[in-house]
Design a protein around this nucleic acid. Structure first.
Lengths: 119, 119
DNA sequence: CCTATACATTGACGCCTGTCGATCAATGTC
DNA sequence: GACATTGATCGACAGGCGTCAATGTATAGG
């Protein structure tokens, strides 16, 4: 993924919105794809449970996978706009993007649309 | 995984205990994986917008992909518990599982966890 | 200056996934 | 009974993904 597509950026591609375009569906799928791996789910969970940025050196031993693999997953999460990286000397700290957390919650919530008759 | 944690250095902030097991992460990732495809996102969107079961013969022309591929995606969504199949003569009707919709919304909403330190 | 550490990057490997065309079973229509 | 239609399944293919070992780069520390 050396090409562009830095952040999804676009506001929201709600799963339940009527008239979802191909582009909307692509962006939404991209967001879910970022969380379609157990290790990435755990990473996000760990960051959500922490009350501040977390060092990679704390993440790696908890995940039980190689260091390069952890780096790989972190890169994907950052590319998806879910995480932010903060370099401090030799260490790298990651933290959740509050905006992305909000976007994720609203995107996955299609109850309003499902409950909506046909307004 | 009760291996002793060799403290290499004190470089990181305290990390709140994660209440997410390996199994939890796997199940969660499985749920997101079901929606990690643009066509499946559109299928779910179409079903959410409809006010009742939808026939495959209605879905196929809207998706712009082969019939066998549509069938493949539907099978995955059913396997994930998001959809239910209802055979009516020659036709197949699919509809969202209300419980799964609820589960998806609550799973994707990690704002509560992010706001909760360690209650 | 030299060594150890943290972490990103690269390359290779196997597996899984999306796609299509073809086929098949079941049902509706004449 | 013969034929058309719906949709599930199969086989094959290309591409993407997760993983690791090895390498590279930058910083901390003596």
């Amino acid at each position: 993924m050396g090409t562009s597509t830095p952040p999804p950026a676009s506001c929201c591609a709600p799963l339940g919105a009527s008239g979802l375009t191909d582009e909307d569906a692509r962006v939404t799928a991209e967001l879910f794809k970022a969380l379609a791996d157990p290790h990435r789910v755990r990473i996000v969970n760990l960051l959500a449970a922490a009350d501040g940025p977390v060092c990679v050196c704390d993440l790696t031993p908890r995940l039980g996978i190689g260091q390069s693999t952890v780096s790989h997953h972190l890169k994907k999460l950052v590319a998806a706009g879910l995480l932010h990286r903060e370099a401090r000397g030799t260490w790298s700290y990651y933290h959740l993007d509050a905006d992305a957390v909000e976007r994720l919650a609203s995107t996955a919530d299609l109850r309003a649309a499902a409950a909506r008759p046909a307004a």
